[in-house]
Amino acid sequence: MPKPQRRRLAPEARKREIVEAAERLLQAHGYRVRVEDVVREAGVAKGTFFLYFPSWDDLLELLRDRLVAEFDTLHPLPTEVDGPVDWPAVIDAQAEAFIDFAAARAGIGQALFHSDFAERRPLADHAVVRLAAIVRAGQEARAFGAVDPEPTARLLYAAIDEAAHAVAAGADRGAIVAALQTLLRRTLAP
């Protein structure tokens, strides 16, 4: 039987195939996925993988950056350019969006944010910085009380992340979101 002919693809298309294969597998199987699984799924040689990604962690870092950028694009922060912003509603909406986003991507999230990779290549505190910016803006608008934005944002993020884990594990989403919003409102009350 003749060997199947390899498809010729432009380098960016081949790289995209690898990335998309990794995303599918990580979403389905979490941190258990390895290079061998990805190359099999993408239909490429292991050497091709390493042509585009010097290490497994390099691929995971690219995927993590893409996931963070996707959230930021889907859920941009408002500005007061067009008028006053309801900052308590913004933080509620951002927290709920994070829960839904994380729950829908539980497998890949496990691999990118809660694995030994996350320890080897920690993510800058992007979510904490984002929450702290909301807290500061809400304080400037007198919608939030006098709390220290950075440590408060860090603790709020821990609560939001735990809420996302609970929902992904099957907890009642409505009850979790309601409890989280109560926590956020009480913590930030003027």
Rank of each mutant, 00 (worst) to 15 (best):
I91T: 15
L123M: 04
Q94I: 08
H165K: 07
R105H: 15
D125Y: 05
V135W: 01
D86S: 07
A93V: 02
I91N: 12
I99H: 02
D125F: 06
A175D: 11
D100E: 12
A175Y: 07
A103F: 03
A141C: 12
R173V: 02
I108A: 07
L112H: 01
A111T: 08
Q110K: 09
L155I: 10
E162P: 00
A118N: 10
W87L: 12
A97C: 02
A132R: 04
L112G: 00
P122T: 15
D86W: 05
V147S: 08
Y157T: 05
A159M: 05
P122E: 14
I108C: 05
A124L: 12
R173E: 02
F144S: 13
R130N: 11
P78R: 11
E162K: 01
A166I: 02
A158D: 13
I134R: 04
A153E: 00
D125V: 06
V147F: 11
V81E: 15
I91M: 15
H114C: 04
A146D: 15
F101A: 06
T152W: 00
A168H: 03
L112Y: 01
V128C: 05
E140N: 06
I91A: 13
V81H: 12
R136K: 08
E162M: 04
A118L: 08
A163D: 02
L155M: 14
T79D: 11
D116M: 13
E140G: 07
A124P: 02
P78F: 12
A104G: 15
V128T: 13
I108M: 07
G109A: 07
E150K: 06
T79Y: 03
I91D: 12
A97I: 01
T152K: 00
A171D: 15
A93N: 05
L123I: 00
H114V: 09
R120A: 14
E150T: 13
R142N: 07
A146G: 09
Q94F: 01
A168V: 02
T79F: 05
V147C: 07
A159W: 01
E150Q: 13
A97N: 09
F113Y: 14
R173K: 14
A97S: 13
A164T: 04
A127T: 10
D125I: 03
Y157V: 06
P84K: 00
L156G: 11
L123S: 07
A124T: 13
D86F: 06
D148G: 08
E119P: 00
W87N: 10
A159N: 01
P84Q: 06
L155V: 13
G170L: 00
R105P: 10
E150I: 14
A102C: 07
V167W: 03
E162Q: 07
A103K: 00
E140F: 04
R121P: 04
A97G: 03
V129E: 14
R154K: 12
A137H: 02
G174K: 01
